[in-house]
């Protein structure tokens, strides 16, 4: 046993995790995406809320997203211990116990939903509660270990925040908020499968039926292309709704042109070619996917911000 493992076990035994260890349970990087997309949904919605209420609503949505991350880490601790990518998470590292993660997840889930209901409205709170339920129960407990389509259906959990932000202002659901949901929902599979192609992950050892493990990399490349084409239809179609406009349309046309070209390039390659250049195209596609979502929501935000000055929208 190494000194490092003795040290981490000692920390866990005494329950002396640092504050940062508890914060890491909330998956801060995922939270940043949640905050951004929820803020865009809130700002693009017709109507307005008090800036302090808007700030609090975004905060509670972020806390709700973090709570579901903590519950995910609690349930998936066995998988996280096996996989190299997740071994350093607080539970496998021994800094936070499974019981603590569960308690924090449950407490923050209840807290965020109730506080969002009190601060904004109960439609937004119900959507947040459903998002937490979907991520923890439907994705983490059920789909993740059962079907290679786990990331497709589970991606819905990450797609709800703009809908919640929209509901904070309007108190309801509309075609625009559903399209913002669909944009993130359709974006998740090609984004994640591209990562799977170049990351030498150990899903097989962990017993997680990811598409590239169960059906092979050729099928994964085909799926990336199909989902990217469907995504392009949704993304460009959004330009002609209430949240779209010339800025969004220009952004969507350029980004979807690049994204479809990237997906075709990945589809035309095989493993030998990819390995030879160190998965250069797959890595570039993954990097573009991050920019893709950020710029699409950025364009929606630009349309909403410029609309009062007569520049945004149609």
């Amino acid at each position: 046993m190494s000194d490092a493992s003795i040290n981490t076990q000692a920390k866990a035994a005494h329950g002396d995790a640092e504050f940062g260890d508890y914060f890491a349970l909330l998956k801060p990087r995922v939270m940043s995406l949640v905050v951004f997309t929820a803020a865009v949904g809130l700002l693009a919605a017709p109507g307005s809320v008090h800036p302090f209420v808007a700030f609090c609503a975004i905060l509670f949505i972020a806390v709700g997203g973090g709570a579901s991350g903590a519950l995910n880490m609690w349930y998936d601790a066995d998988i996280d211990r096996v996989m190299a990518r997740t071994k350093k998470r607080p539970i496998p590292a021994g800094t936070v116990s499974e019981g603590e993660a569960f308690a924090i997840g449950i407490a923050l889930s209840g807290f965020s939903v109730v506080m969002l209901g009190l601060a904004a409205n109960w439609v937004a709170a119900a959507l947040l509660a459903f998002t937490i339920f979907f991520y923890v129960v439907i994705y983490t407990m059920w789909l993740k270990r059962w079907t290679p389509q786990n990331i497709v259906i589970g991606g819905a959990a990450g797609a709800f925040p703009p809908m919640i932000g929209w509901a904070v202002v309007t108190g309801g659901i509309s075609i625009e908020s559903l399209l913002m949901f669909t944009l993130t929902f359709m974006w998740t599979p090609p984004h994640f499968w591209a990562l799977c192609l170049f990351m030498k992950s150990d899903y097989k050892d962990a017993g997680v039926p990811m598409l590239h493990v169960t059906h092979g990399r050729r099928v994964t490349r085909n799926h990336i292309l199909v989902y990217t084409l469907l995504l392009a239809v949704v993304a460009i179609g959004m330009a002609f709704t209430g949240v779209g406009g010339p800025i969004y349309l220009t952004t969507a046309l350029i980004l979807n042109g690049l994204f479809v070209a990237g997906a075709i390039s990945i589809w035309r390659r095989d493993e030998e070619v990819s390995e030879a250049d160190g998965y250069k195209r797959e890595k570039a596609f993954f990097a573009l996917s991050l920019l893709y979502l950020f710029l699409h929501f950025g364009a929606i935000l630009a349309e909403a911000t410029l609309a009062p000055y007569g520049y945004g929208g149609w």
Binding site: Y22, C56, M115
Partner: peptide, 24 residues
């Protein structure tokens, strides 16, 4: 040091919660 950092973090969270409830 670790305990102090954790206690300080919890204190800040609680104070922030009071400010949020008051502000709302």
């Amino acid at each position: 040091k670790r305990r102090f950092g954790r206690n300080l973090g919890v204190a800040l969270v609680l104070v922030s919660f009071i400010v949020i409830v008051f502000g709302l």
